[in-house]
């Protein structure tokens, strides 16, 4: 019998994701894949496996599942509430998922969370990837009652965590193709305007609500449709900014006021609705340097792994632990 997880309940917005399908841009199919690529890397580091493996993405959704065998699980991305047979699990960490135990996850403040299984999800490959591209009708959302195969797991460590990523609320932008269309005054106003994350958002894009008037341009309604990349901040006809995400369209005619650095997208993806962001333009060479540094940091995440310290209040069988004997080196007492 193959290793698998069974989905006992799934709200809308749960899907199987991986790094998506690069290479079909010319045919109008965007890369898709996990919205939060940092979360993919964090889960891979926590489980000591490749970040090419498929995971569950919870786009603000909730899920209840159990495993056919003893497995390992890691939880990354936006903070969510997780319990295993009713006992709370620490987010941003790896845990044992014993056979038959019920893992229940529900959103706390919103955003995109990720559930990684040791060995990765062995969902069917379509056009070179396992990730569902919901906008393109490729694959589908995870449904209650689904069984998803899980690949062989060569690792065994659990109880690890990563230091929480330092996520502020500044979205750094580089100029985009149509940035100049808006004029210096509008660009300065964009940087000065509080931008509130709206409840409306999905894998295609996240709406931001500016304080005061929007950023509409007259000419913007008749510009030529042009290539779009994830992170582009599209201004629709009513002046509202949308940050386009991994499942965005490949071309579009609404002007883009700038492009959010890929390294800053997790800030937006992990925040709850109502979070206030600020936009700040930075020069392209600075942005390229930041991205190169972030790629290096992502690749070396496993060096930052720390043992997970359990909060004594969360340990129901506390009295079974020897609490006083032994000496600790001290460093494992750092909080994750």
């Amino acid at each position: 019998m193959t290793r698998a997880i069974t989905i006992h309940a799934a709200s809308p917005g749960v899907s199987v994701q991986d790094k998506g399908r690069p290479g079909y841009l010319a045919q109008g199919l965007s890369r898709g894949g996990a919205a939060d690529l940092l979360a993919l890397a964090e889960g891979a580091a926590l489980l000591g496996q490749s970040d090419d493996l498929a995971v569950l993405e919870l786009a603000g959704g909730a899920i209840t599942l159990s495993a056919s065998d003893d497995m390992r699980v890691a939880l990354t991305g936006a903070d969510m509430r997780a319990t295993l047979d009713g006992a709370p699990l620490v987010w941003g960490a790896s845990h044992a998922l014993p056979k038959g135990a019920v893992l229940k996850i529900s959103p706390s403040r919103g955003g995109f969370g990720y559930v990684h299984l040791g060995g990765g999800l062995d969902a069917p490959v379509q056009m070179g990837a396992r990730g569902a591209h919901l906008a393109a009708g490729l694959g589908q959302a995870v449904q209650t009652g689904d069984t998803i195969a899980v690949g062989p797991d060569t690792g065994h460590r659990t109880g690890l965590c990563l230091p929480a990523a330092a996520l502020d609320t500044t979205l750094r932008l580089v100029p985009s193709l149509q940035t100049a269309l808006f004029g210096d005054a509008a660009l300065a106003r964009l940087e000065a305007t509080p931008l509130t994350k709206d409840a409306r958002g999905n894998r295609m894009g996240q709406r931001l609500v500016p304080e005061g008037e929007g950023f509409a341009t007259e000419t913007g309604l008749s510009i030529l449709s042009e290539t779009i990349v994830p992170g582009d901040v599209q201004i629709t006809g009513d002046g509202m900014p949308y940050v386009l995400l991994s499942e965005c369209q490949t071309t579009g005619g609404y002007p883009r006021i700038g492009t959010v650095l890929p390294a800053d997208l997790p800030k937006l993806l992990r925040a709850g609705p109502g979070t206030v962001f600020r936009a700040r333009f930075i020069p392209l060479d600075e942005a390229a340097a930041l991205e190169r540094a972030e790629a290096k940091r992502r690749a070396g995440l496993s060096r930052s792994l720390q043992p997970l310290l359990r909060d004594p209040r969360d340990i129901p069988d506390l009295l079974r632990y020897q609490l006083v004997s032994g000496v600790t080196a001290g460093n494992e007492l750092e909080e994750c």
């Binding site: 079909y24 045919q27 109008g28 393109a136 449709s225 369209q249 071309t251 579009g252």
Partner: peptide
């Protein structure tokens, strides 16, 4: 003139 926006979609 191009395929774009969504998969296989012609302009």
């Amino acid at each position: 003139q191009t395929i774009g926006f969504a998969p296989g979609q012609p302009y």
